[in-house]
Design a protein around this nucleic acid. Structure first.
Length: 476
DNA sequence: GCATGATCATGC
DNA sequence: GCATGATCATGC
């Protein structure tokens, strides 16, 4: 062995030899016998580390306290490297894992310190020929661990109370209970109910993995570690201390509460931000409050990024209705074309993420705005909205079933190069979701994955207005 | 009033 | 230059 198996650093250093290489460079000539057995991680252990994989409860390299993980990357249309999927760990056993504390959990025993090897995904390629691109020695930061522990407890609460069939990745922030297994699989038994639940595994969410890849890209090296930056920056000490005593949800909602009934103008003034006429000014305002700083670009605070937390603002009119449906990002047709598994799709990630809805309500005529001196001034305000409340939301399982049909329909149209007006679900179908144009100019076109020609209309994913109204109603 | 098509201000 | 979050504008 060319490394010290009791030292994480030594194992990490040795793993650098695998970068820009594939396992075949280290495998015996007649190595085909390896294919088809075990995961890629096990193969790396055997072939590259010459280490017999253990079946223990603990980390792969037990003496170093180090878990080895391999995870795929893919190229985008713009040839940028992207995370392909969530990092999946062990299966959840609803029956055996019942009542287990975080410290007794598979995840805690294995994953505190991980060596994550990023490789380039290639369809129809022997695992011996996959190219490794980055190595990351990652110790879970204390802040992340607090949030992950909370995630774990949220998941276990459902398992312990016989509600595992209602588990959703949107329930949690970084650690998710992701679907695992084939469609026809039988349901797993759980305690305290006769209802079966689909198989699920522990996983670190795609959004969390994306921040790890960003961390690597911010460095100049293909191999890096966060070990040397484990000391917590001064400005983060407060938030770490807060996290020790409050859940993330409590902290975020607590940030919104002082601004209830205030309008955009006064909030911007309080934060010393220039007022804007941007259509998304309420989203900007919500982000300023949620992140408690003057960042005006939305959804960029650390926890929001890592959790893929999707903050959405909604305006309620004076008549109690809302005007608009809710739009999401543009449909990436190449992504839809390439991805044949619903739970690996970008749309699934968007819809199964946690949401933070921020509700604004139209004011009726006059509104009192506190001035700097402490007195209150009255203004006449037409078309002015005030912050009403903020709440977290996760899409229920039954709606995710409809979302899957929605995605399948979109995929069918994309595969048939049928990307134009009238091809997709409409509002009038009343099925929660629809597809509608979204572009800078109506004549803008995207490339069709089928023909490679710039002929595809630009569309994006939408929640129907009535679906948004239903969500608000159910959270009143 | 609503569905649908079209576009805006911003930040990177 | 374009994605993003979002709202505007039109026609029935």
């Amino acid at each position: 062995m060319n490394y010290d198996k009791t030292s994480a650093i030594s194992i990490f250093d040795y793993s650098k030899l695998l970068l820009d290489h594939c396992l075949r460079d280290y495998a015996p000539e007649n190595a085909e016998e390896y294919s088809g057995k075990g995961g890629l991680g096990q193969l790396v252990e055997k072939v590259f580390f010459e280490y017999e994989p253990n079946n223990d409860d603990g980390p792969d390299f037990a003496e170093a306290g180090l878990e080895l993980k391999c995870t795929p990357l893919k190229y985008s249309v713009k040839e940028e490297l992207l995370i392909k999927e969530r990092l999946v760990g062990g299966m959840i056993n609803y029956y055996e894992d019942y009542g287990k504390s975080f410290e007794q959990s598979h995840f805690y025993k294995k994953c505190l310190l991980m060596l994550i090897l990023f490789y380039l995904h290639q369809a129809n390629t022997s695992r011996l020929d996959l190219k490794f691109l980055y190595a990351l020695l990652w110790k879970l930061p204390e802040k992340d661990l607090i949030i992950i522990r909370n995630d774990y407890e949220i998941i276990m609460k459902k398992i312990n109370s016989g509600m595992a069939h209602t588990l959703s990745e949107g329930d949690t922030m970084y650690l998710g209970a992701c679907r695992k297994g084939q469609k026809g699989d039988s349901l797993e038994r759980q305690r305290n109910t006769s209802i079966g639940a689909p198989r699920r595994a522990w996983s670190l969410k795609t959004s969390y993995m994306r921040t790890l890849l960003d961390f690597i890209k911010s460095k100049d090296q293909k191999a890096c570690t966060n070990l040397e930056i484990m000391t917590i920056p001064k400005e983060e000490v407060t938030s770490l201390d807060m996290l020790r005593h409050h859940t993330f949800d409590e902290i975020v909602i607590g940030r919104f509460e002082p601004f209830y009934n205030m309008n955009c103008n006064s909030v911007f003034e309080q934060f010393g931000i220039r007022m804007t006429r941007a259509k998304n000014k309420y989203a900007i305002m919500a982000n300023v409050i949620a992140s408690n700083n003057t960042l005006t670009n939305v959804n960029l605070s650390e926890e929001f990024l890592k959790a893929g937390l999707m903050m959405k603002t909604i305006r309620i009119e004076k008549n109690g209705r809302i005007k608009e449906s809710m739009s999401f990002e543009n449909i990436d047709y190449q992504e839809v074309y390439d991805c044949d598994e619903w739970t690996d799709s970008r749309l699934y990630e968007i819809f199964s993420n946690r949401f933070l809805f921020v509700i604004f309500k139209a004011t009726d005529g006059k509104i009192k705005i506190p001035s700097k001196k402490g007195s209150e001034k009255e203004f006449d305000l037409e078309d002015e909205y005030v912050l009403q409340k903020a709440f977290f939301w996760t899409m229920p399982q039954e709606d995710l079933v409809i979302a899957e049909e929605y995605w399948k329909d979109i995929r069918e149209q994309v595969l048939n190069d049928n990307i134009h007006d009238g091809a997709f679900w409409k509002i009038e179908n009343h099925r929660n979701f629809h597809v509608r144009p979204k572009a800078l100019k109506g004549i803008d076109r995207d490339i069709s994955p089928v023909t490679g020609l710039r002929t595809a209309d630009k569309f994006c994913y939408w929640f129907n207005k009535e679906y948004v109204e239903k969500i608000i109603r159910e959270n009143e």
